[in-house]
């Protein structure tokens, strides 16, 4: 479903702030794969996700989603294939617009925006039903401004928006990192439900090793712009945090993992 081939990205080339964020990364995701991504700060996780999403273009390599080469496709055009939830709860929704308006914008992802009504009566009923599944009481607040919602509610809403039109690829960029543990667990729970329900191909960055082990069918760990570990199948099911740290040390010859990763 997703094919990343030899993708490199260097920020501020030729300056003292030069930073090679991705070094010829290749990654292939099968249809329905749920891949968790971990790694320390500056390992290249977010750069990888943003390059796939089209926030910026790679310096080298190709990105293919569902057989379509999107390497040079602008962000808003490849949004047709991609659902996204960001780390900052403020990023994924329009605060000054109503809940139903946000959903209506997401309902039209990938379609051309015409002079037809921005939201129809039939949609409202549908949104009410969908919001019920979140179990946050949002179904009675369709016309409330999203800015009035809590961070957790906003992330849950963004998740719903990302999956409203079934995406070929769901990108989650530490989408629970800004939430308190209890809310984070709820949002992760909702994520798991939606991914299972729609059989979504998913790439999820997390700073939490336990979450990375519990969720998904495959785990990759990034280090200095490369994929240092790639664990799937039975091996992933039996994985523990200790195993992971040991494997990381073997793969990179570094014991940085302990502090960098555990501290997040």
């Amino acid at each position: 479903m997703l094919d990343i081939k030899g993708v490199s990205k260097t920020f501020n080339p030729g300056t003292i702030n030069e930073k090679a964020a991705l070094r010829s990364v290749s990654l292939h995701l099968e249809d329905g794969d749920f891949v968790t991504v971990i790694g320390g700060n500056g390992a290249g996780k977010s750069t990888l996700l943003n390059t796939v999403a089209g926030t910026y273009f790679p310096d080298a390599g190709t990105i293919t989603i569902g057989g379509v080469d999107v390497t040079r496709l602008p962000e808003h055009k490849r949004a047709k294939y991609i659902g996204r939830v960001f780390q900052d709860p403020m990023t994924g929704t329009a605060a000054t617009m109503q809940i139903e308006e946000n959903l209506a914008l997401a309902r039209r992802r990938g379609a051309s925006r015409t002079l037809r009504p921005g939201i129809t009566r039939a949609e409202r009923g549908e949104y009410r039903e969908l919001l019920k599944t979140l179990d946050l009481g949002l179904e009675d607040r369709l016309t409330a401004k999203v800015g009035l919602l809590s961070g957790g509610q906003r992330q849950a809403l963004t998740l719903l928006m990302a999956s409203l039109v079934k995406p070929k690829l769901l990108l989650l960029d530490e989408h629970t990192a800004a939430l308190d543990p209890k809310t984070a667990a709820k949002v992760l729970d909702a994520t798991e439900k939606i991914v299972q329900r729609d059989h979504l191909t998913t790439l999820m960055i997390t700073h939490n090793m336990r979450d990375a082990i519990v969720h998904g069918n495959r785990l990759i760990m990034m280090y200095e712009g490369r994929i240092a570990l790639d664990i799937s199948g039975e091996e992933k099911k039996k994985l523990t945090v200790e195993d992971l740290l040991a494997k990381f040390g073997q793969a990179t010859g570094s014991d940085e993992a302990d502090d960098k990763l555990l501290l997040g």
Partner: peptide, 9 residues
């Protein structure tokens, strides 16, 4: 950022 993620030019 949200607008672009929802496919808006």
């Amino acid at each position: 950022a949200m607008a672009r993620a929802q496919g808006i030019n």
